[in-house]
Design a protein around this nucleic acid. Structure first.
Lengths: 221, 221
DNA sequence: CATTTAAAAAACAATCCTGTATGTTTTGGC
DNA sequence: GCCAAAACATACAGGATTGTTTTTTAAATG
């Protein structure tokens, strides 16, 4: 009941490596299930049994591929990391900059994408892990390079998007911090009243600040 | 071994209510230990045994005062809530405003205090609880009014601190959000590189933004 | 087709945690 | 001093979770 495909379909005859394919399919299913568990149950409530249940796989089968809980979780974190890097590129690629003119619209779209980024399910999953890492030394060490990766991606993308700023590193870093801290602060806050309106105001406000920072940067150069 | 005072000291003769006093002493010790556990171990790793160990009390004694884990945790949350409200007042009372002049120094000190507030141990403990509440419906319902309390405190304090803004609710709310989201976003982010410098830049930047918002507010009135 | 190997499922032991139940000490009133 | 009640300590049962072991099933190969 509820297994993955257990035998090759008639159409696709037994190809040499179909077993390996099925194996990786299952592994992906397990990792994605682990991430879903982070989101639904929280990091520490993500048990091996729950992951297997989500993946519609017996716990024994899972333990065959990932010999311990830690291994599953670390693999899931790596999987999530790659996914988030991709999602970031996807979102930012959506920004419409007809002729690379630094209009307000460009800034605003960037801010909006950052906000969307902080509202993806993968962001929630990631925050669960980060929160757990605060009191889990081993996990924290595992996460450190991941965090560095993100900081680098932010900077690299910003550099390519706003080449004028490439030289003025300080202002660029400030602009990034403003956007990241604000959007993530909003995403992590549990706003009770008129969330939408406040978010909207904040996003517009940040956009204005970006323009201001940019103005300072160019006037200084 | 390692108990609280188990009998009245010679100096203080058996007063009528000393038993009740000792009882509340122990309860306070337990609640503070629970909060320490949140900080050291994380919310979900805070077991009844650990709390008792931290409080240097037998688990049985603890279960006598708090019949279930949930009760201890809820009592600890309420205790933490009061503590945080007090700490906020303490910090904000420190802001030196000689003649209520709205100089940059006043804004800056406010921002700095908000940053300090987000770096208190109690903030960490609180975030542990908030994070856990995301996947714990019962806890979330328990936390909702607490969150409202804080939002109200922010607004009330800001109103009293900047009476000129009292009428322009929108700008005041924006200013509060800017400070809260930014400082909390920073506190929750795991900055890897030159944290101090970035924080310093952000605090100064926010201060400038507050002045700007204030300028918009007064020019509109 | 038979056999060997990998994959999957199930069963098991060890640990931890909660809640309760039972036993012991201490306190306050008489 | 004595007794009832509370405060405190210890012991135990039930459930959950992890990792291991054992059994069963499926696949690959000669």
């Amino acid at each position: 009941m509820g297994k993955l495909e257990t035998s090759p379909k008639n159409g696709a005859r037994k190809s040499a490596g179909w077993q390996a394919e099925k194996s990786t399919m299952m592994q992906v299913a397990i990792l994605e299930s682990a991430i879903d568990c982070f989101i639904d149950l929280g990091y520490s409530n993500t048990t091996t049994a729950k992951i297997a249940e989500y993946a519609k796989v017996s716990r024994g089968a899972m333990m065959h591929h990932f010999p311990s809980r830690l291994r599953v979780l670390q693999a899931a974190i790596e999987y999530l990391h790659k996914k988030r890097l991709q999602e970031y590129d996807m979102l930012m690629a959506n920004i419409d900059v007809p002729d690379r003119a630094l209009s307000r619209a460009v800034f605003y779209e960037s801010v909006q994408m950052a906000w969307r980024y902080a509202n993806l399910p993968s962001f929630t999953a990631y925050q669960e892990i980060l929160a757990a890492s605060r009191t889990d030394r081993e996990l924290a060490e595992f996460m450190a390079p991941v965090e560095r990766d993100f900081e680098n991606q932010y900077r690299e993308h910003a550099k390519s998007m706003f080449p004028h700023w490439s030289d003025l590193g300080e202002y660029l870093d400030l602009a990034i911090d403003v956007v990241v801290f604000t959007t993530q602060g909003m995403a992590l806050s549990h706003m009770v009243q008129n969330k939408e309106a406040r978010v909207d105001k904040m996003l517009n406000f940040i956009t204005d600040q970006l323009q201001l920072i940019y103005g300072s940067a160019v006037s200084e150069s």
